[in-house]
Lab assay of single mutants.
Amino acid sequence: SADYSSLTVVQLKDLLTKRNLSVGGLKNEWVQRLIKDDEES
């Protein structure tokens, strides 16, 4: 899986927004959300 934890907050928020995922919570929660989205898609 991609190394989301190395991305900036701005990059992570951009990815979350593009995938229609929530940008609520902490940075590590966003990373988990993106990883989960990868596994489900």
Rank of each mutant, 00 (worst) to 15 (best):
S1K: 14
S1D: 11
S1R: 13
S1N: 13
S1G: 14
S1Y: 14
S1V: 13
S1M: 13
A2V: 15
A2I: 15
A2S: 11
A2Y: 14
A2G: 11
A2P: 14
D3R: 08
D3N: 07
D3T: 05
D3Q: 07
D3S: 05
Y4V: 03
Y4R: 02
Y4M: 04
Y4G: 03
Y4A: 05
Y4P: 03
Y4F: 03
S5P: 08
S5T: 12
S5A: 14
S5V: 09
S5L: 11
S5F: 08
S5Y: 11
S6W: 08
S6V: 06
S6D: 12
S6G: 12
L7D: 04
L7G: 04
L7K: 04
L7W: 02
L7V: 02
T8C: 08
T8E: 07
V9I: 13
V9R: 07
V9C: 14
V9L: 12
V9W: 04
V9Y: 04
V10L: 12
V10F: 03
V10M: 12
V10Y: 02
V10G: 13
V10D: 15
V10W: 04
Q11D: 08
Q11N: 03
Q11F: 02
Q11M: 08
Q11K: 04
Q11V: 08
L12W: 00
L12M: 05
L12T: 01
L12F: 00
L12I: 08
L12H: 00
L12Y: 00
L12P: 01
K13M: 14
K13F: 08
K13T: 08
D14F: 01
D14S: 06
D14L: 05
D14R: 06
D14W: 03
D14M: 05
D14K: 08
L15T: 03
L15V: 05
L15M: 11
L15W: 02
L15N: 01
L15S: 02
L16R: 01
L16A: 02
L16F: 00
L16H: 02
T17V: 14
T17G: 09
T17I: 15
T17S: 10
K18D: 10
K18F: 04
K18P: 00
K18T: 09
K18R: 10
R19L: 06
R19P: 04
R19T: 03
R19M: 04
R19N: 05
R19E: 05
R19G: 06
N20P: 01
N20W: 01
N20C: 10
N20Y: 03
N20A: 07
L21T: 02
L21V: 02
L21F: 00
L21M: 06
L21N: 03
S22H: 09
S22C: 08
S22T: 07
S22Q: 08
S22Y: 01
S22D: 12
S22L: 06
S22W: 02
S22E: 10
V23M: 11
V23I: 12
V23A: 09
V23Y: 08
V23K: 08
V23F: 08
V23T: 15
V23W: 06
G24E: 15
G24W: 00
G24Q: 15
G24S: 15
G24K: 13
G25N: 03
G25K: 01
G25M: 01
G25T: 02
G25D: 07
G25Y: 01
G25I: 01
G25Q: 02
L26S: 15
L26E: 15
L26Y: 10
L26T: 15
L26I: 10
K27Y: 09
K27D: 07
K27T: 09
K27G: 06
N28I: 08
N28S: 10
N28P: 14
N28C: 12
N28H: 14
E29G: 03
E29F: 00
E29T: 01
E29Y: 00
E29M: 02
E29Q: 07
E29W: 00
W30G: 04
W30A: 05
W30S: 04
W30L: 15
W30V: 05
W30M: 15
V31M: 06
V31N: 02
V31T: 02
V31H: 03
V31A: 01
V31K: 00
V31F: 05
V31Q: 03
V31C: 06
Q32D: 13
Q32I: 08
Q32P: 06
Q32R: 06
Q32M: 07
Q32N: 11
Q32G: 09
Q32W: 01
R33V: 07
R33M: 08
R33P: 04
R33H: 05
R33Y: 00
R33S: 06
R33W: 00
L34W: 00
L34C: 07
L34G: 01
L34D: 03
L34Q: 00
L34T: 02
L34Y: 01
L34F: 01
I35Q: 10
I35H: 08
I35V: 10
I35G: 04
I35A: 07
I35D: 04
I35N: 06
I35Y: 07
I35C: 08
K36S: 10
K36M: 12
K36P: 03
K36E: 13
K36L: 11
K36I: 09
K36C: 12
D37S: 12
D37N: 11
D37L: 06
D37W: 15
D37G: 06
D37Q: 11
D37E: 05
D37P: 01
D38G: 03
D38C: 07
D38K: 02
D38R: 02
D38W: 06
D38N: 03
D38H: 05
E39N: 10
E39G: 08
E39R: 10
E39D: 09
E39W: 12
E39S: 09
E40F: 10
E40Q: 13
E40H: 10
E40D: 13
E40V: 11
E40N: 12
E40M: 13
S41T: 11
S41N: 14
S41F: 11
S41K: 15
S41I: 11
S41Y: 10
S41W: 12
